[in-house]
Write a protein that binds this DNA or RNA. Structure first.
Lengths: 115, 115
DNA sequence: TTGATATATTCCCATCTTGGAATATGTTTT
DNA sequence: AAAACATATTCCAAGATGGGAATATATCAA
């Protein structure tokens, strides 16, 4: 009875637009919290909070370096999303006929309704 | 100041596990609300509510048929998700060397930390 | 030790959510 | 018109959220 926790799974974790921004910004890089904050134009606690959630679902790795913490993206947990969406790939990818017939079918049914 | 609305975008809409179940169950089929409710073992209002959200983000199409409403999945709005995740595909797909070097790098850095 | 720096955490609030129960709306049948 | 059926909507409660502000924690430097 309440929304799914953001740390429940990857789907929930990346539902937040700012966290997707963060992942994009950190992709392939290794940045400090403050570096990230400056780069994004966010305050430090906001960066830390979002990174904490991303860390919990495994989308970022944390490495201590003195008083800094360097974060890096680990994209592997995104695989389930890729796989889930791939179930429906046939409708738009490769086989355009499928898509067309699908759309035609909808079109037909809708115009039938309008009569 | 609050979580992103479920209808804000596709990412938020499919963050809810039940809605993903619903999409899977309706994929390729065309089912009535009651048929869906029976199939899922949910009550009717719950099905209607989730379908309403899915409809708002365009993931299902609704067709009136007498007093029934037939719902069908339209997977096209999932494309942005596919595309977004694809940015990171290189890390796990095709080029296993990338993945390995990536993991080794992390491993190295982590053991360095432990000293 | 003390101060400065880097980061995480806590507290508060407005807002949104999901589920259940009840009810409203709309359509068909008798 | 009235009853039956199919679906949507409303009202409620309990959580959970993201952001701001303040504060705690940890580490380095002087």
């Amino acid at each position: 009875m309440a929304r799914t926790k953001t740390t429940f799974d990857i789907f929930s974790a990346i539902a937040e637009p700012k966290r997707r921004e963060l992942i994009e910004a950190l992709a392939g890089k290794a940045l400090t919290v403050n570096q990230t904050a400056e780069m994004m134009g966010w305050n430090q606690p906001m960066v830390s909070k979002h990174l904490t959630i991303l860390k919990k679902v495994g989308l970022v790795n944390e490495q201590k370096d003195g008083r800094c913490r360097v974060y890096q993206v680990n994209p592997l947990p995104l695989m389930p999303i890729q796989n889930w969406v791939a179930q429906f790939e046939q409708f738009w990818n490769g086989n355009l006929d499928n898509l067309e017939s699908y759309l035609n079918e909808i079109q037909t049914k809708e115009s039938k309704d309008e009569q």
